[in-house]
Amino acid sequence: MNIQQIKQDSETKAFRRLAARIKKDFPRLPILLLCDSLYAGEPVFDICKKNYWDYIIRYKTGSIKSIMEEYEAIPKKGCGKTPKTEFLSGIGYKKHEVNVLKFEENQMRKKKIVTVKFQWLTNIV
């Protein structure tokens, strides 16, 4: 394993322990998880589904290639209030369905306008 895989493995194990403790202490509490891209994967999706939790997870390009490949293959996507917002519901990933949200904005950095892209995975419809 490389250093990134070791970090992800230990954080996923810690998430499992924390999720079990939270569910035990607060069994009916509705939860919405906001996570970075390390948590984008089947173990976290499984826990959220089992506990009836919602999630919004930052998607890092390349972390789950099959999701973005399917997203890019579908030509017609939903748009938000601006043309720089896109979303697509019901992308299959193993035994889960996830929704993808993309957003672009222009930012001023060092006197230059730079386009910054954000992507999230969620189970919220």
Rank of each mutant, 00 (worst) to 15 (best):
M1H: 13
N2I: 06
I3L: 15
I3W: 06
Q4T: 14
I6A: 14
I6C: 02
I6Q: 13
K7F: 06
Q8P: 01
D9V: 01
E11M: 09
T12S: 12
K13I: 04
K13Y: 09
R16G: 09
R16V: 01
R16I: 01
R16Y: 01
A20N: 13
R21Q: 11
K24E: 12
D25I: 00
F26S: 11
F26Y: 15
P27D: 08
P27C: 09
I31Y: 05
I31M: 14
L33A: 03
C35H: 03
C35W: 02
C35Y: 04
D36C: 05
S37C: 07
L38N: 15
L38E: 09
L38Q: 11
L38A: 15
Y39S: 10
A40C: 12
G41L: 01
E42A: 14
V44E: 03
D46T: 14
I47G: 02
C48D: 05
Y52S: 13
W53C: 01
W53F: 09
D54N: 13
D54Q: 13
Y55C: 02
I57K: 13
R58Y: 09
R58Q: 11
Y59G: 01
Y59I: 03
G62A: 07
I64Y: 04
K65R: 15
S66L: 06
I67F: 01
E72P: 00
A73K: 15
I74C: 07
I74V: 14
I74S: 06
P75E: 10
P75R: 14
K76G: 00
C79P: 01
G80M: 10
G80Q: 08
K81A: 12
T82N: 07
T82Y: 08
P83S: 12
P83D: 08
T85C: 05
S89G: 04
G92M: 04
Y93T: 06
Y93W: 10
Y93N: 07
K94E: 07
K95R: 12
H96E: 05
V98N: 05
V98C: 02
V98D: 03
V98L: 02
V100E: 04
L101T: 04
F103A: 00
E104H: 07
N106Y: 14
Q107N: 02
M108S: 09
M108V: 15
M108Y: 07
M108C: 06
K110P: 00
K111Q: 07
K111A: 05
K112Q: 11
I113K: 13
I113C: 08
V114R: 08
F118P: 00
W120K: 03
W120V: 14
L121F: 13
T122E: 00
N123R: 11
N123M: 02
I124N: 08
I124K: 14
V125C: 11
V125Y: 14
